[in-house]
Nucleic acid binder design. Structure first.
Length: 655
RNA sequence: GCCACUGUGGCUUAGGGGUAUAGCAUCCCAUUGGUAAUGGGAAGGUCGGGAGUUCAAAUCUCCCCAGUGGCUCCA
């Protein structure tokens, strides 16, 4: 007999040789929802045999660990269906990911109809409730089992070597090399859906074999799957491409080219409001503004290191009669020249120059997406030239600036990331290992001191130095880089940056901080649109007031109200057409004005307005305050706009 | 760039070998209306572009162009 402690709560006695699953079933009953077990702190299959005293805990399907196992098992199930349907397909790897899993196969590409067939087949395998069994084999047996799959052999070479054995999991005729654990049978995998296919490369190396990747989502319960589908649908409604079209923020025309958005009047209002706000903020932080050209000579980008390290991201050169020119992908080289334009004194440091600079990047055509990834972008860029001692304070100021900006725009779903170089893959970076080590530590200390929580990411640095990136989570739950604060230890040598220090010596220890707290206009507006679902705070709204008349009798009063608002610099638009009031409201809600102002007989008689919130997708739609004195409305509105308030406070929720 | 899918008037969309549906928007007429559909009428498309198969192509085939998702996650 052995003593088994369950879930840190109770201890039971069992005959040695009992399985983890049998114990859990004995204690919790059959429908407890566990997919595997933790035995003495190691994740095990339900079939794991207990032959000595131990501790055991169930892994529930809905826990993070449980979902991981479910998704991993679901990937195996997909592989089983694929090899049954396409006997020549070679499974490679199939990990769980957020919301689901994927599996890469060496096989011909497949389309939607095959995807549906695969899903059907998987459902059939689920209904057959096939047992998933673990087997352990010697190295040579394993190599024999997977002799027709060079990818699995390569995995073994890398991970296991030639000596030791490992485990496989078998379900029906399908066997996969795997550490496990897995769910005990296919019936646990009911709540999945295959979502898409893609092409990937073996080992993510485009010189190696192209693979067909199949994606799926998988949850422990029907409710989990439904919730994810709802989230996807919800995210679709917030999609900046859809809202951008509806609100006429921007357009993309084939004749201009892809990745080259045109800002329409409404989008330009957003851009210029954001820019105005940034200019004010940065002026108060001691930045000076400059404007630099869109192109420059090859020699500049050789000097900066862009051509050796970043040429893939730049457009091909233009041969002119006096040399070779490139469109700029970054503003920094030109800003360095601004610094170098005259002798600098220590009294000038930190020297901060800023520019809403327009850069051109040669993104792969397939990577372009709405405003999120474009080929021409306007960066909220600035460079700070300072001593090593000043770096801490400057970075701290920028972290604070980012936090202030985000709170002003209402962003909450973000986190800081310390982006480090990859010492295993140094080709992408300037080769100065000691500088990498020291600057990375420096940034880490600054973040620790500020007590800002952050994660570290290897291989995400810029070629010239480590970064603090601010990562934004989209409505779909995907992570994207928004703001960035980068420390550059290479520019001082490449551009011979120096200053005259307190001792009258020429000092070359000039550190450069690159920073873009508001990302690019393009990406920022995309996030902003998604975050607010187009229902921007009043100060940003392209249409701040949409006047709607009840009948054409109020034409004059509407025109009077509108000219007063215009004088107060409020963006106002009037609909005094002969359509019905209901129709006018319906028509304008998709443009999402901050407020609708209804003007009828009563309002005109009393010199008042009725203020209404009615914006597509806004839960406050329909809220209205009647009979507000015109004077008061104008005062309140002006305050709300001037203070850049996040709240639409002119309509109280009393109805 | 690569893989898959998609492309029908300004927008949303039906159809799927016999040159095209509807709604919204637009314009006109009537209506002067109190909060998510007031009636009626008109106009608007070489079905993303090009080539091919066919008596006949929006529809089938091929090539382009553009959009969407994916191409970091290492048993």
């Amino acid at each position: 007999m052995i003593n088994v402690e369950i879930n840190d709560e109770e201890t039971h006695e069992y005959a040695s040789g009992i399985s983890a699953g049998e114990v859990l079933e004995n204690v919790y009953g059959k429908r407890y929802g566990a997919v595997a077990a933790v035995v003495d702190d190691i994740e095990r299959d339900m079939s794991f045999i207990l032959d000595s005293d131990c501790k055991i805990e169930p892994i529930l399907g809905e826990s993070d660990e449980g979902l991981y196992i479910l998704r991993h098992s679901c990937a195996h199930l997909l592989a089983q269906a694929v090899v049954e349907m396409f006997p020549d397909a070679k499974p490679t790897i199939g990990p769980p990911i957020d919301h689901g899993f994927y599996y890469d196969f060496h096989m011909n590409p497949i389309g939607d109809s095959e995807l549906k067939e695969l899903e059907k087949k998987m459902n059939k395998l689920i209904r057959s409730n096939i047992k998933i069994e673990r087997e352990e084999h010697e190295n040579n047996i394993l190599r024999e089992m997977f002799s027709d799959n060079k990818f699995k052999i390569e995995i073994m070479d890398d991970k296991i070597g030639q000596e030791i054995g490992s485990s496989v999991y078998r379900q029906g005729d399908f066997v996969d090399l795997c550490k496990g654990p897995h769910v005990p049978s296919t019936s646990h995998l009911r709540w999945f859906k295959l979502t898409s296919t893609s092409q990937a490369y073996w080992r993510a190396d485009h010189n190696r074999e192209p693979l067909t990747r199949i994606y799926g989502m998988c949850y422990a319960t029907k409710a989990g799957l439904k919730e994810r589908q709802r989230q996807i649908e919800e995210a679709g409604k917030r999609d900046h491409k859809k809202i951008g079209k509806e609100m006429e923020l921007y357009m993309i025309d084939e004749l201009i080219g892809k990745g080259l958005p045109v800002w329409l009047p409404n989008g330009e209002i957003l851009r210029s409001e954001i820019e105005k706000y940034a200019l004010e903020t940065e002026e108060s932080y001691g930045y000076q503004r400059v404007t630099t050209p869109a192109l420059a000579k090859q020699e500049l980008f050789e000097c900066s290191g862009h051509l050796p390290h970043y040429s893939d991201g730049m457009y091909p050169p233009m041969e002119m009669d006096d040399g070779t020119y490139y469109l700029k992908a970054m503003n920094c080289p030109m800003h360095h020249l601004v610094y170098r334009n005259k002798k600098r004194s220590y009294r000038e440091l930190p020297f901060r120059i800023a520019e809403y600079g327009t850069c051109y990047r040669n993104e792969m055509s397939g990577a372009l997406a709405g405003l999120l990834r474009v080929r021409m972008l306007s960066m909220n860029d600035a460079h700070i030239y300072c001593t090593l001692d000043q770096v801490g304070q400057e970075v701290a100021n920028n972290v604070k600036m980012v936090q202030d900006y985000y709170s002003r725009f209402g962003f909450e779903n973000y986190h800081f990331r310390l982006s480090l170089w990859d010492p295993e893959n140094t080709d992408k970076y300037i080769k100065q290992p000691e500088n990498w080590a020291s600057t990375q530590n420096h940034l880490r200390e600054i973040l620790d001191e500020l007590e800002v929580p952050y994660v570290e990411a290897i291989g995400e640095a810029a070629f010239y130095g480590p970064k603090i990136d601010i990562q934004f989570t989209t409505a779909l739950g995907r992570e994207e880089s928004m703001s960035t604060i980068q420390l550059d230890f290479a520019a001082k040598e490449r551009f011979e940056l120096s200053y005259k220090d307190e001792n009258g010596e020429e000092n070359g220890e000039v550190f450069v901080i690159h920073r873009a707290p508001l990302s690019t206009h393009e990406r920022f507006v995309a996030f902003l649109t998604e975050h607010w679902a187009g229902n921007f705070p009043t100060w940003l709204s392209p249409v701040q007031v949409q006047i709607i008349t009840i009948s054409e009798k109020q034409k004059q009063y509407a025109s009077k109200v509108s000219s007063i608002l215009k004088e107060m610099k409020i963006r106002v638009s009037v609909d005094d057409s002969d359509a019905t009031i209901g129709k006018k409201i319906r028509m304008h809600r998709k443009m999402r004005p901050a407020y609708m102002v209804i003007l009828g007989e009563d309002e005109e008689k009393d010199n008042t307005v009725s203020i209404r919130i009615d914006r597509k997708g806004d839960s406050r739609s329909g809220d209205q305050c009647n009979g507000i004195p015109l004077e008061q409305f104008i005062t309140d509105l002006t305050i709300e706009v001037k203070s850049r308030s996040r709240k639409s406070s002119l309509v109280k929720n009393e109805n």
